[in-house]
Nucleic acid binder design. Structure first.
Lengths: 143, 143
DNA sequence: CTAAAATCGGACAAAATAGTCTTAATTTTA
DNA sequence: TAAAATTAAGACTATTTTGTCCGATTTTAG
């Protein structure tokens, strides 16, 4: 479904969001410990999320990663997914057919499309803040 | 979502089913041409499906692959998916958390689980015959 | 000013997935 | 019975994904 890169990216973003809600800036080392991900690999993913302006980085001692309050509320899960895994998931055929579409459906298109659409709705409806608050109030886990 | 191996496997099975409905046995060469897949790789996948008793193979000249009439109706898409990609998809967490469950949910579990359950229902409800008939009546494509 | 604490960027390495090739085994047909 | 047509099996290769390493850069604190 999602690449591991994307999974780590979402988990890292949720954790940075949580810390930002708590008024803290957090470091790569702490992030990868708290989301149980390889540190060097996570660094690469965070670089990408910084370039895509989903998170912010501050260099130097006392540096780290954070997310501004407005962005916590406005950024959707979909933005992380698309930034890392691309937009392909929105149209991808379950059987891998390159030209599958409503006009030219594969054998499962009509059953699969509604499920896929719900998934896209999930992505575009879910905010980073919402996911982080689940961690904050301990109703959800992150590793 | 599904591995390429699995996509090829499903497409090959649909094509073999179509030919079986038409009363024909079909060869690897023809299958891979008709579903637009690499021949040698497809051979490997078909071997697996034979071992799993989803399709039947007949060796020698005039040999090939076929599916019996009863199996066309009784075999579900889920059996192909599980044979090739395994059962993991049924419980897999969207964020890749190994212990994510209803009791221990990740930040998106409650939104994702219903979608995942629909997908599983799609798999277990869809028969091979049903998929092949879409090709037969030209309401669906296979490559 | 300098040392320490961080991120950044590019090259490299390992593992998983996708795909090929060659030879053997089996069956049909001329 | 020999040749041709076909699948089976295993070793090999290629590509993609996942992950590491190291040196450069930036910033803070002492």
């Amino acid at each position: 479904m999602l690449s591991k890169t994307c999974e780590y990216g979402i988990r890292a973003t949720i954790f940075i969001a949580l810390q930002s809600i708590l008024g803290k800036r957090t470091s790569l080392k702490y992030i990868s410990k708290e989301i149980d991900s390889p540190e060097a690999f996570t660094a690469k993913i965070l670089q990408k999320l910084v370039k895509e302006k989903i998170i912010e980085s501050i260099k130097g001692a006392n540096g780290g990663f954070e997310i501004s309050q407005p962005k916590l509320k406005s950024t959707k899960l979909s933005e992380i997914v698309y930034a890392i895994d691309g937009y392909d998931i929105r149209n991808r055929c379950m059987l891998g057919l390159p030209h599958c579409s409503p006009d030219n459906p594969c054998s499962v298109h009509n059953k699969y499309k509604p499920v896929r659409d719900e998934l896209i709705t999930l992505f575009t409806d879910t905010t980073i803040e919402e996911m982080a608050l689940g961690i904050k109030d301990k109703s959800a886990i992150l590793k």
